[in-house]
Amino acid sequence: MKQKIVFPRFDAELNTDVCDAYNNAELTLTVRMGFSQINPAAGADEGTYHDYGNAAKPARKIIKWTPATWKAWKDTFCSSVQAFWSDKFWLINDAGSFLYTAKDAQVYVPNVWCRLKVIGQEGAAANNHHSIDVVRLHPSVKWFGSHEHLYDSKDINSVEKNRDSHGKKVMQQAHVHEFGHILGLGHVDIGKAHCPASGDTNASACYGVSDVDMNSVMGSGMQLRLEHAAPWREAVRAFSVGEVFSGSASPIDLLMPLARLVVGGNTLFAVWPAKMKRHYPRTSAEAAAGTLITAPPKRGAK
């Protein structure tokens, strides 16, 4: 079965048709990105554009987009973001949701594989989840002041963002970091004393003070962490609770969580812990025992 829930930041689709004794359910978040060109004024080949789109800030040299460079940039944006964020997390099914009977007649508790699909379309499209304007920088320009709705052509490059305690460069591709925000993720150090959630969470300290935090993709680096599975966890909880209300599972599962404990969990209190390694579907007994299966298990007939 394929089910869909529309969230403000993305559409989520849960596919349990792919489930068998070895394969988990797939949860795909789809983000429609709208792209609009910013070109030099009056059709000129070259011009300038100010950092952050603010006339009081430095003007940078820009050049006109061509159809080929525009298409290449959008394609690279979408493919590189998708390659970075998709297929990296598995959510452990501690809710006992989405049970299915495989061909070996065994009932399985599927985990959830977290996938991402990024669709690039015109900036004016009505159904975009997020839209950005993009300037094409002159080859001589090394940097431009971007923000969440204003990018530059070099934002897909890996550039030095920070220096760790050993003086080592911490590199980042800005668009990959920004896409984390599009998914709903905040900066790595939000909530710590040097980056209170009540303050401006764009302060440099929020990008990570310790070397470990600095290297997070939601800091100044490119490392994924388990907490970055939060958007998929949010979505799967909605499907899990929705399963009960839609009649796919009994409402008694919500009222009497103990009923779910026979397969190791219940819908309301489920955490859906994230892992960064494939975890295979479990039998009810394995789920109840809390067993995690990371190597291909021996199952009955496929």
């Binding site: 950092d51 800030k57 430095p58 940097w143 431009f144 002041g145 971007s146 923000h147 934002d155 550039v159 030095e160 963002k161 920070n162 220096r163 460069k169 980042q172 800005a174 440099s204 990008y207 100044s220």
Partner: peptide, 25 residues
């Protein structure tokens, strides 16, 4: 944070107060 646009301005706000701005994404 050595990346970004570097130091874009240092201005004197009063007799003994100065303000430096560092451009970041």
């Amino acid at each position: 944070m050595r990346g970004g646009g570097g130091v874009t301005s240092i201005i004197q706000k009063s007799d003994d107060l100065f303000e430096a701005r560092l451009a970041q994404e």
